[in-house]
Design a binder for these strands. Structure first.
Lengths: 247, 247
DNA sequence: TCCTCTCTTTGATCTGTGTCAAGGTTAACT
DNA sequence: AGTTAACCTTGACACAGATCAAAGAGAGGA
């Protein structure tokens, strides 16, 4: 279960809120206020952070780990509508119920802010609203890019697109030095991948095998992926451009 | 709503910017500034407003008509990623190139604002940024709802979902009094519908015929749709909830 | 070490939707 | 009224991906 953790400045220097999400240009007094209304929650892989429709008295930013936003139909069909990586923002100022189910797909740490005070800060601190607008626009672009994947790409292209996105974001966050031979850990099960790209898990597995057989990727122990040639992968993904806004 | 006296009231009173999009709470001086930087553009059905990658020196709001945001792959596969109805906003503050191709699907009138001055207004007028954030979040929700449609619904459910969305938005905009028997004009060709829901135009046509045959809808002259029972349509769409945030 | 549970792979078969092709309908223009 | 071009419908068939089924692989616990 989640447990609130006492604010801790050491920890906070790792908190992407400080760096990217909200307070890149905050004044010391504003930062102090953010410190006061923030707390941490931790979840383990597979745990559900919140269910669609739940009351939500906070907004949050992912500090570490990966979470999935999903929507489910009555009969159980599930579609992932967003993948939350470190620095991504969860929750909507001005709305008190969750629109989507949020699930931790790996161990997850979130930095939460009480919603009331946070909304008041937005009103009085223009650059926070500005930053939120930018982040939301980025998410909208990502969602629209994904609509093309869901609507028009083949199974193989979908897999390649998903791998490319994760590889790229991973590279942006961590090992920026990919001297031809990018390695990363897949933070998703085959089923979660299937839910992301609108396929069945069997098809995902088959296409992964096919990409492996044809040396587009290497797979170690089903979760560690090596991409010998990123351009090749992007070609398989059907991306005309380099596909890449990295923020 | 603001009652401020401003230049060109007649013209402006038709402009949804005034009412919904940007300046619902603007001061008279701000409204006067908006008046100065705004102008109108008109397009006829089928015309392309801008191509993905074009330089864009304005942002805009749809006043009348319908426009489509589309993305296209090298080989011609096309996906619509947004449908712009009156009061919807186009363009991204802080970005000078268009991310998507915008096409008028009916006669279209847009109210445009020069980008530079508009961005300066955002910085100095907090509630405009606030309003933009809200609109962007609504669009994000719509995009994510659409991801479920694209990824997990059958052809029949996709068609029903599309009809439901258009019917609902049409009803919200115009004939609020739908005494069981909602009638509206489809602003899209079969091909545009197919591009929206990730099908071929033949499948769209077949499913429309099937829905007609089974009395879920009536079709007059291929474009005018009557929905005798909205609940039935929503059932066909697979929507568990009423599906409806109308803003 | 063996057990067990979860995740993954692979095979056989079925089906919804795409593809190809032909013909019908509508509306604008001469 | 006739011509033309765009749009729409319907049919026959093919195929990508779903479904059903079974077995392999890996990790944690006794």
């Amino acid at each position: 279960m989640s447990q609130a953790v006492v604010p801790d400045l050491r920890n906070c220097s790792d908190c992407p809120i400080r760096h990217r999400a909200v307070c890149a240009r905050c004044e010391p007094t504003e930062l102090a206020l953010l410190e006061k209304i923030k707390y941490y929650r931790r979840y383990s892989a597979g745990e559900t952070v919140m269910w669609a429709g739940d009351h939500m008295d906070f907004v949050a930013s992912v500090v570490a780990g990966v979470a999935a936003l999903t929507q489910t139909m009555e009969d159980g069909r599930t579609q992932m509508v967003g993948l939350l990586l470190p620095s991504d923002f969860v929750g909507r100022p001005g709305r008190s119920t969750a629109a989507y189910t949020v699930t931790a797909t790996t161990a997850l740490t979130m930095c939460c802010f009480h919603r009331g005070p946070f909304e008041r800060m937005i009103d009085t601190t223009p650059h926070i609203a500005h930053r939120l607008l930018e982040m939301t626009l980025d998410e909208l672009d990502a969602a629209r890019e994904w609509m093309l994947v869901l609507g028009r790409k083949t199974a193989r292209e979908k897999i390649a697109s998903l791998l490319a996105i994760i590889a790229r974001r991973d590279a942006a966050l961590a090992n920026a030095a990919q001297g031809r031979g990018l390695v990363f850990e897949l933070p998703l099960t085959r089923e979660a991948m299937a839910d992301y790209i609108g396929l069945t898990l069997e098809t995902v597995s088959r296409q992964m095998s096919a990409l492996k057989r044809e040396r587009v990727i290497e797979i170690t122990g089903s979760r560690q992926i090596t991409v010998p040639d990123m351009d090749r992968l992007l070609l398989e993904a059907g991306d005309d451009s380099d596909g890449g806004y990295l923020n």
